[in-house]
Design a protein around this nucleic acid. Structure first.
Lengths: 202, 202
DNA sequence: CGGACATGTTTACACCGCTTACATGAGCCT
DNA sequence: AGGCTCATGTAAGCGGTGTAAACATGTCCG
C-alpha cells in the first residue's frame, strides 16, 4: 500500500472531489439542498459515478457532514480555546448559533436530513463536541479536568448547554426566532444562556 | 356567509380532508415524509387537486403543522397546566421531547423542512408556546403574571428553556443522543434541565 | 333554465435517488 | 511486451417527486 486514497485512476480521487463539489455548492448557496446529481454535475462526472464510492446519498452527506463538524469545532475553538465561566460558555453558544445561521445548508446536513447516526464519522464528531463542552463546563465549575470525566453534573450541564445552543440554532434557522442583525442575535443568545445559568429558581 | 369552509362541493371540504389524510399517513408511519402526491392519493383525489387549495406543498404542511402545534400545547398542558418551579419545568421539557420522539414526522413538519416562517398559523403557534412557557417561568420566579409580560429575564428564560427542550428533542431525533428506554430518556431530560437550573457557576 | 366559476382531472415537464448493463483504461502477471 | 482483470466511469432507464397548463364537471345564482 502507499496512500489511503489511490490517486491517479480515471478521475483521481473522486470521493474527495465530490465532497469538495458539495462544499462548493453550499458555499454558493448556503441554503442549497444537496442533490447527488447536482454534486456529480459539479464534479464533472456522470450521475451514477458517485455510487462507485458512496453507498447512497446519505453516505456522501455524511462525508460532507464530517467536514462540517471539523469546521464547527475549529470555529468554537477560535472563539475560545479554553472557555472558563458563564461568559465564555455564552460565547460558545453564540458561536454555535452563528455557525448554524451562516451555513444553514451545511448545518442541516450535519444534524437534520435523516442523518444516519451510525456513521462512525458522526459519532466521533458528536463525542468531540461533547468533550469540548464538558471541558469548558468542568473548568467553569472548578472541577479538575480529570475528575470531569466522571462528574455527572458536568456531563448533564454540557449536554444541556449543547442542547440550548442547538435549539437556539434551529429556532433561528427555522424562523421561530429572529433578530434584526447578527449582532442582535449574538447578544440575544448570550442573554438567554446567561439567564439560564444565573437564575435563582424557587 | 354561513360556514368558513363551504361544504358540499365536489369533494366536500377537500382542504380538511387533505390535512386529515396527511395526519393518517403520519399516524401509520410516524417517520413518513409527507409527499403531496401520497397525501392526495390517500384522500382519493388526483395529484393536482391539492393545488386548488394550497399554494404548494409547504402550504399544506403548514396546515398540518398547525394541528401539531395544538397537539403539542395540549400535551404540555396535560402534563402540567400551571407549572411552578424547576421540577415542573423539567416535566415540561420531558413532555416536549417525548412528543417529538413519539411523532418525529409531525415534529419535523412543525419545525424543520424549510418551514415557511411567515405562515400566520405558525407565528401564532410560536407565540402560544412562548406564552405558555413564559407563564410557567414567571410563576417559578415568583413574578406576577402581569409583570411577566415585560420581564426581560422571564422572556430570556422562557426562550432558553424552549431552546433546551427543542435542542434535546432534535438531538434525540437525529440520534445524537440516545436512551435505552423512554423512561430513561425522560429521566435524562429532567436531569439535564435540573442541572442547568440549579448549578452554581463561578 | 343557462351560464359562470370554483373545483377536480389529465397530461406533461423537469428533477430526483438508484439500478442495471455496458465501456474504458490502469496496473499486474507472465 | 502483451494480454487480462477489475476498479472506475458512462448511458439508459425505472419509479418517484413538485408543479404547471389545459381541460372537464357540477353547483349555485341570476
Amino acid at each position: 500500500m502507499s496512500s489511503a486514497t489511490p490517486v491517479g485512476y480515471h478521475h483521481g480521487d473522486l470521493p474527495a472531489a465530490l465532497v469538495r463539489a458539495a462544499l462548493e455548492l453550499l458555499a454558493e448557496d448556503s441554503n442549497a439542498e444537496l442533490s447527488l446529481r447536482a454534486v456529480a454535475r459539479r464534479a464533472g462526472v456522470s450521475t451514477a459515478a458517485p455510487y462507485r464510492h458512496f453507498a447512497d446519498r446519505m453516505a456522501l452527506l455524511s462525508a460532507v457532514a464530517a467536514v462540517g463538524y471539523r469546521e464547527l469545532l475549529t470555529e468554537l475553538g477560535k472563539r475560545n480555546p479554553k472557555p472558563v465561566g458563564v461568559q465564555d460558555i455564552a460565547d460558545l453558544a453564540a458561536a454555535y448559533v452563528e455557525f448554524a445561521v451562516a451555513q444553514p445548508g451545511l448545518f442541516r446536513v450535519m444534524f437534520a436530513e435523516g442523518c444516519d447516526p451510525t456513521s462512525p464519522e458522526r459519532v466521533a464528531a458528536v463525542s468531540a463536541i461533547n468533550e469540548y463542552l464538558r471541558g469548558g463546563v468542568a473548568r467553569s465549575l472548578g472541577v479538575t479536568e480529570a475528575a470531569a470525566a466522571q462528574d455527572d453534573q458536568s456531563a448533564a450541564l454540557a449536554t444541556g448547554l449543547w442542547a440550548t445552543a442547538h435549539g437556539l440554532a434551529f429556532l433561528y434557522l427555522d424562523g421561530k426566532l429572529s433578530a434584526d442583525s447578527s449582532a442582535a442575535r449574538d447578544r440575544h443568545v448570550r442573554t438567554v444562556v446567561s439567564a439560564l445559568a444565573s437564575t435563582e429558581w424557587r
